[in-house]
């Protein structure tokens, strides 16, 4: 298989719906694709002790995260027959209701795309050194924990 270089997956602020639309559009010329699977992570306005989360501020250990993401990418391409795979994760502030994670896999038939997409999301959540700080209306905050 071809050697893939580490890609930067990080974007400043939210992933915009228009960007997601354009990403889908860009695949219309790849007519060997029969299925796309997309996961979108959206910031939830959780209530904690009567206060609601207004935004999550993301930070990362970028060098390590990109190396780890590269390892995940290679493993996923080895395991599933994918045409392509794209991952975008927000850094900085993302308001409740906005998108902070966009995972996009494509394959000839649906199973590879859906299984790969689900596995990528799980691995991102458990293996990437990224931290979310949940911000409340009153300038208080708490550090997010992945469940």
């Amino acid at each position: 298989m071809t050697e893939r270089k580490p890609k930067n997956i990080f974007v400043e602020g939210p992933v915009l719906p228009s960007f997601i639309g354009e990403s889908i559009q860009q695949h219309s010329t790849k007519t060997n694709i029969g299925a796309h699977s997309i996961f979108l992570g959206q910031v939830r306005a959780d209530m904690v002790d009567g206060k609601s989360v207004t935004a999550i501020e993301y930070t990362t250990y970028q060098e390590m995260a990109l190396e780890k993401m590269h390892t995940i990418r290679e493993a996923i391409f080895d395991k599933y027959t994918l045409t392509c795979m794209h991952v975008y994760h927000s850094l900085g502030k993302v308001a409740a209701g906005e998108i902070s994670l966009f995972v996009f896999t494509s394959s000839a038939h649906r199973k590879a795309a859906t299984d790969a997409c689900a596995e990528i999301v799980e691995r991102i959540k458990s293996e990437l050194p990224v931290w979310g700080k949940e911000l409340f209306e009153n300038e208080e905050y708490q550090w997010k924990e992945n469940k």
């Binding site: 458990s126 050194p129 990224v130 979310g132 992945n146």
Partner: peptide, 9 residues
């Protein structure tokens, strides 16, 4: 590097 529990996504 000291890494607290990850909470990306």
């Amino acid at each position: 590097a000291l890494l607290p529990p990850f909470s990306g996504g």
